[in-house]
């Protein structure tokens, strides 16, 4: 049953990706990006990675779509047609993709308990985290306690991103109506 769901979701995923690449109307492309994120979130759910799926659904589908729409409001709604056929780019993408697919053949199977990544610290997390940290959701234990430094770093990164946006754009107080007129003519 899982394999059918995976096939359906992956088909949808590639169809949306192709649509994003083909569509010239940016509004449709943004909506397709949102759908792409949502399908990815569904894929994460089928892999039992609910925390990741949650983040993908909230950030990828929600915030990213809104931010792209807000950005689109400042530019045009139509993608310019490229003056050339990007055949070289296609070649590079195909070659890189093939190499990557070839690389996955060496990877352990999905969910293989003997995979190296499940031999290092994961057993400690699974066996000891209820006594050492407590929360029933081990993802929280790992993120917040075992890897507290990483999460502190991530929070600092988000804070820095916010600061950069504040420094570059301000927070909407700027009265730049003169620029708007210029933008509309551009």
């Amino acid at each position: 049953m899982d394999i059918f769901i995976d096939i359906i979701l992956l088909t949808l995923l590639s169809a949306t990706a192709l649509a994003v690449a083909r569509i010239r109307k940016l509004f449709c492309a943004i909506m397709m990006f949102g759908i792409f994120s949502l399908v990815s979130a569904c894929l994460f759910v089928t892999m039992d990675a609910v925390d990741v799926a949650f983040t993908e659904a909230a950030v990828g589908t929600g915030i990213a779509t809104i931010l792209m729409l807000a950005t689109m409001a400042l530019t045009s709604t139509e993608e310019k047609r490229p003056p050339y056929q990007p055949l070289v780019a296609l070649l590079v993408v195909v070659v890189t993709g093939s190499v990557l697919v070839y690389g996955t053949m060496d990877l352990p199977d999905y969910g293989d308990p003997m995979a190296p990544i499940h031999q290092h610290v994961a057993p400690r997390y699974i066996q000891q985290s209820p006594e050492e940290v407590g929360p029933p959701n081990m993802v929280t234990s790992v993120l917040a306690s075992y890897r507290g430094f990483d999460t502190l770093g991530e929070t600092a990164v988000i804070f820095t991103a916010g600061l950069s946006i504040y420094a570059l754009l301000g927070l909407g107080r700027r009265e730049n109506r003169d620029h708007i007129v210029e933008d509309d003519h551009a």
Binding site: L67, L74, S145, T151, I165, G172, R174, N176
Partner: peptide
């Protein structure tokens, strides 16, 4: 864990709204 999750939530909330204010305020 409660405290640091609170910290993460506060920063993420503020930055996400900041991003949105920044873009839509243009």
């Amino acid at each position: 864990i409660f405290l640091i999750e609170l910290g993460v939530g506060t920063t993420v909330f503020a930055v996400m709204v900041m991003l949105f204010y920044g873009f839509s305020g243009r």
